[in-house]
Every structure is written in structure tokens, then in C-alpha cells.
Design a protein around this nucleic acid. Sequence first.
DNA 1: CCGCATCCGCGTTGATACTG
DNA 2: CAGTATCAACGCGGATGCGG
Lengths: 129, 129
Amino acid sequence: MAKPATKLSEQVRRGELYTVDCPSRGVLKHVTSLWGVLVLITLRSGTHRFSDLRRKAKGVSEKMLAQTLQGLEADGFVDRKSHPVVPPHVEYSLTPLGREASSQVESLVDWIEANLYQVMQARQRKQEI
Amino acid sequence: MAKPATKLSEQVRRGELYTVDCPSRGVLKHVTSLWGVLVLITLRSGTHRFSDLRRKAKGVSEKMLAQTLQGLEADGFVDRKSHPVVPPHVEYSLTPLGREASSQVESLVDWIEANLYQVMQARQRKQEI
DNA sequence: CCGCATCCGCGTTGATACTG
DNA sequence: CAGTATCAACGCGGATGCGG
């Protein structure tokens, strides 16, 4: 790749998340959206078709799933393979980069699930007041 | 209410994130929202006032900051101390639970920032097609 | 039939103004 | 200073359409 290296390196410094128009905010949004999280985690177990993902990520609409996958694909986290057959067959899988990302996300989700009970207790305490 | 402890333990099992109405989805939403992330990370450096947070989390509106803080407080991640003086003085800090959560979130954000350059390259590749 | 783009109600968000 | 009230704008979900 040629190299917009210089241009990028200016904007891409640590802590730039605090800057309103830093691209990291966009990446963060893709990765941490509910459907982004579910897709990344689901794909850890292997390649999935569109409809498989739709079934596993309970509650996602077709539109949001397509949108989510496009975002993750554009960011280089997900690989899309379309087989030109009838009926259509499209496979989604994690890229090496996506596998790293999904690992981070999974660890966050694991923590949340492990501590969910404490959170629920905290919520109830507030509600009683 | 006494304790729906039994009730919770049924619903709060690993992998329940895939269930549409599992509370973990709500927690995830609070924690991974853009403003949730910024607040959690910002508070790692110590107690902050409302306006401090507003200034550091660039781009957040007063409404969303208030809303975000209420959500994180309800979930037991953030502690709110209001000093009844004029002008008002309210301090926000992390609870022990919140400190753990923010640690997880920070590690995700660190990874994103560290790999942002690769993501930007992937985006450009797609755009060139 | 599957994958996705489009169009339309509606809830959530954001900018502004106002109050304790 | 720390929020709430208000209204406009945007994003999401659901239904529909359509090419492959």
C-alpha cells in the first residue's frame, strides 16, 4: 500500500479517542455496538452464513445485520465471501485482525456476564430508594 | 423487595447474552456506548465533576452525559457524591466494580488505538475498489 | 429462496433554553 | 454549576421489493 502513513500517523496517536473526529471513535462504535459485539463473538466459532448469524444473534433485524457486517468488513475485521449460486450463498469469517478484536470484546463480555449478578443487585438497591 | 436471587441466577448464566431480554445486554449497552466508554476511562484518573467530564469527553451533550452517568450509577459502576452548596458541587468516581469494568474497557480501547492504522488501511483498500 | 437495498413510523440523540 | 424541558434531526426496526 503506497502510504498515507504520514497523514494517518498524525491523527492516530494514543488518547485521540478524546478528539471528536478521530477515526477511532467510528471503529469503537462498530466494534462495541450490540450487533457488532454479537457478530464478532459468534464468528469466533467459525465461518457463518448471513442467515446463520441472523439466527444466532437473537433479535437482530436483517437491515442492521447487513449494516453491521458492512461496517466490520470495511474496517477489516470480517471477510466476506460470496458464492454466485442459486440460492445465494455468502460466508462471513473473521480476519486475523478481527480475531484479535473479537478476543478483546469477548473478554469484556465475559467480565460483564461474570459480574452481572452484582450489577443487578446494585440496580435493585437504587430502585428501593 | 427481598431478593429475586434465585430468579436472577436462572437468567444470569454464561452465554445468555444471546437471549434477547437478558439484562447483560442492557449492561453492555451502558458500558460500550461511546459516552459510557469515555466516562469510564476518564474516571480512571480520579474523581471528576460534571463539567470536568463534559470538557474531557469532547462532543458529549449535557443531556447524554447526565443520562450516561445515571445509567452507570444505577449499574453500580459510578459513585455520585453531591455536596449541597451554592454553586452545586457534584463529584463522580468509580466504584470498585466500576474500576474493574473500566479496566476491561480500557484494554479494548487500547487495542483499537494500537491497531487503528491497520483499520484505516483496510478502509482505504475498500474505498479504492 | 437468500442476501440485501429501500421506504416508512418511531424511539433515541443532539442543540438550545431554562431552573434550582 | 448541575442538571431538566423542549423540539428537531437522526438512527433503528419492520415491511417491502428485487436481483441473483
